[in-house]
Design a protein around this nucleic acid. Structure first.
Length: 117
DNA sequence: TCGCTGACCCAGG
DNA sequence: CCCTGGGCCAGCG
């Protein structure tokens, strides 16, 4: 099922399943895309994603519960936080997200009939 | 084909 | 909490 897709497509496919108001970590996305241990690849894939696409790239954060910032992204780190807050995700004064409250917990399997919204 | 470059993660000290 | 080292791989000159 759905083999033959390259690593990036698999990654985008997983990211599209993260529901509104939840976040997933790079490592988690990697594992769900059958790329366990290759979290870094997820970062590379999201670096290239077109922000106007249907991929909710802003719902992917690092394992520390923070929005990963990069000098190369200029204002988009703020945009990411802004989008998340718009979905109800809150940040601590230190700029961290409580993963115990917002981390996406896929119910064992792949979504079977549409995502959120 | 080679080399550089990235939104990472985890175990140790 | 900070820093270090090792593992990871695809796109673009």
């Amino acid at each position: 099922m759905l083999f033959g897709m390259n690593a990036y497509d698999a990654i985008y496919d997983v990211v599209r399943q993260i529901p509104r108001g939840s976040v997933a970590t790079y490592g988690q996305v990697a594992a769900l895309a059958n790329l366990a241990g290759k979290a870094r690849l997820v970062g590379y894939a999201l670096y290239r994603v077109d922000m106007t696409s249907d991929v909710p790239w802003h719902r992917v954060i690092n394992a520390k519960g923070e929005v990963s910032e990069s000098p190369l992204r200029y204002g988009t780190d703020y945009l990411q936080r802004s989008l998340l807050e718009g979905e109800g995700v809150t940040f601590s004064a230190a700029g961290k997200i409580n993963l115990r409250a917002y981390l996406w917990r896929p119910s064992g399997e792949r979504i079977a009939g549409g995502w959120d919204e």
